[in-house]
Design a binder for these strands. Structure first.
Lengths: 340, 340
DNA sequence: TTGTACGCGTTATCAG
DNA sequence: CTGATAACGCGTACAA
């Protein structure tokens, strides 16, 4: 546990001033090439590493980005995080990651921690019961940029990165209609969240456009867990007039529901055509493969992080009302393909 | 973008010295209850937040834990991280997370970043091609604790948290034998990693104990990806004398392999009984359900983080040669159950 | 129980 | 191009 090397040590050994050393190490233009070379080599020799705290304290910024996600243990989120980590790492930023566990209470606490950690910026995907962005007001006040991704809130303070969930919901439903479905059910999650609310809207709109029946009997909202998938299967089996199309806002839930229905003798896609959402790896595991909406988690993470970094470095000053819309793609697989 | 409140501001307003304020805020015993109350309430009123950098700079520690994992986008890893985040958060530590993407090169870079970020401790699961721990020697030298989890390396410098992969591999194989399999194939990952090498050893041992045939034809090592699962299915179909039992060291790979074999007319478990590893959610999606080894990711993360924190706070000084062994569980599902 | 004064390692300013 | 010096905000030895 020996002492750290500082710029003073280097300065002393080289008979230079600490200031010069500091500048050289930061590649300051106004430093002689020679001395710069001498200093960097000496630094290497002594195993010098810059003290981020001193530097942060002095510069009043941290090169750290805070991330708050609903859950870490989700296939989609982990691809998003993977993308963020990649970009952050390349941009010489650290990531502080925390999860709200779908609870506003924890989200508030996380926000506070992030604030106290003095992150340079924040990337957030909202918990399912978050109603407003008040807990981020401290950030807004201090001009710390906040970018929302995936589960966003249409508000005028911050940039959002999303897909067009309404259109995607429409497309998913429309696809079922094209496959001949006439009675289509939709299962969504917390309607406080844009992702689910919009998909539902898209679903309704598609039905409307084609003069198909909808209504409460055909709409369910739950937490999209495994158990919810099983429950939906039970519900469908109990319906006097069961649907011939099913659009579930999450693959994992869709897949378990499908499994249960298959076991009960439903033929998929003939009795019931199914479409999920997310292109979770499981959609390829089930037989037949699950038709789904693919949207690029990795890319969403990369773009979110990159936008934030660009903003921080002043490369690209995002208007605070900006929304970045990513493309999605309907991936048709066996669970919905009646005519090939 | 107004200026931050410091202890000086509080001190001035209260006609006290900054030292007293600092002590009060840190709950120092030698401070009058009254003044303490006055100070904390004033701090709250002014919206004071401690400056971690100044504090870290002063105290020479960061309350930050570094985590390096092979991949963020893995079901298992994300449960582990979830556990770590929970404990770290409760213990007032921040997590800096990065991924090696299974590459030693990136792992080395990550280690350096962590070192420069002056993390108080490190939690690491090794990349698939890591050969030694030399890139962590800087940590050892400075006495910064390093805990390895899941993919560990038996070395005398640091604590490891694992399950008994050999025994688990043995149990998995033994289960297949009990179900009447006589020709059992095993698919593993990088044999540089304990997790795969040990499972393979367990497999071999079980065969040996029961006088069953093994050998190169029945052992495959790959990256356990989706594609690898499909390849294995092809391989099995091409075998003149195909196996009647299959033990794959990762669920996701097992599940895709199973799917492909089913499509080719294999009856599971009758023609071929299958066992996976990890209890990934997908193991419940496939039909029949995949028999697997469950091991507690969340718990592993919690224990890793807690051990590190205990060590840091001096609550529990782990011997550096310690190994913590977690329990695992064989979960029997339809993919291997021939007799019920 | 409280105050004084210094140093943690950098970087920015100003001067040369 | 380089040097001296003053912060950044906090914690703590020492003094009172």
């Amino acid at each position: 546990m020996q002492k750290d090397i500082t710029i003073y040590d280097i300065a002393k050994q080289l008979q230079l001033s600490p200031a010069t050393v500091s500048r050289a190490l930061n590649d300051h233009p106004a430093i002689n090439h020679n001395t710069k070379a001498i200093i960097t080599s000496k630094a290497l020799e002594l195993g010098y590493r810059s003290n981020m705290f001193a530097s942060n304290l002095r510069r009043q910024r941290t090169n750290t980005i805070g991330v708050i996600v609903p859950r870490l243990d989700s296939a989609f989120m982990s691809t998003v995080l993977s993308g963020m980590e990649k970009v952050a790492n390349e941009g010489n930023y650290n990531l502080i990651i925390s999860q709200s566990l779908e609870s506003i209470r924890k989200e508030v606490a996380n926000a506070k921690t992030m604030f106290d950690s003095r992150v340079d910026g924040l990337l957030v995907s909202l918990a399912s019961d978050t109603e407003n962005l008040d807990h981020f007001s401290t950030f807004f006040k201090k001009g710390i940029p906040l970018i929302l991704f995936d589960r966003v809130m249409t508000q005028n303070y911050c940039t959002s990165i999303v897909i067009d969930n309404l259109k995607a919901g429409y497309d998913a439903t429309n696809h079922l209609i094209e496959q001949g479905c006439r009675r289509i059910m939709h299962v969504s999650g917390s309607l406080k969240r844009n992702v689910y609310a919009d998909r539902l809207k898209g679903y309704r709109l598609a039905l409307l456009d084609h003069g198909l029946p909808g209504g409460r009997e055909l709409e369910r909202a739950n937490n999209l867990t495994r158990q919810d998938g099983l429950d939906i299967a039970e519900y469908i089996k109990s319906m006097p007039n069961p649907p011939d199309g099913l659009f579930i806002a999450s693959d994992f839930c869709a897949v378990t529901c499908m499994g249960a229905l298959k076991q009960s003798g439903f033929s998929i896609p003939n009795d019931l055509a199914v479409v999920g959402f997310n292109d979770d790896p499981v959609s390829l595991v089930i037989d037949p493969g699950l038709t789904t909406i693919h949207y690029p988690g990795q890319e969403m993470g990369e773009i979110a992080a990159q936008s934030l970094i660009n903003h921080l470095t002043g490369l690209l000053r995002l208007s605070t009302t900006n929304t970045i819309l990513l493309n999605y793609e309907l991936i048709v697989r066996g669970s919905s393909q009646r005519y090939s």
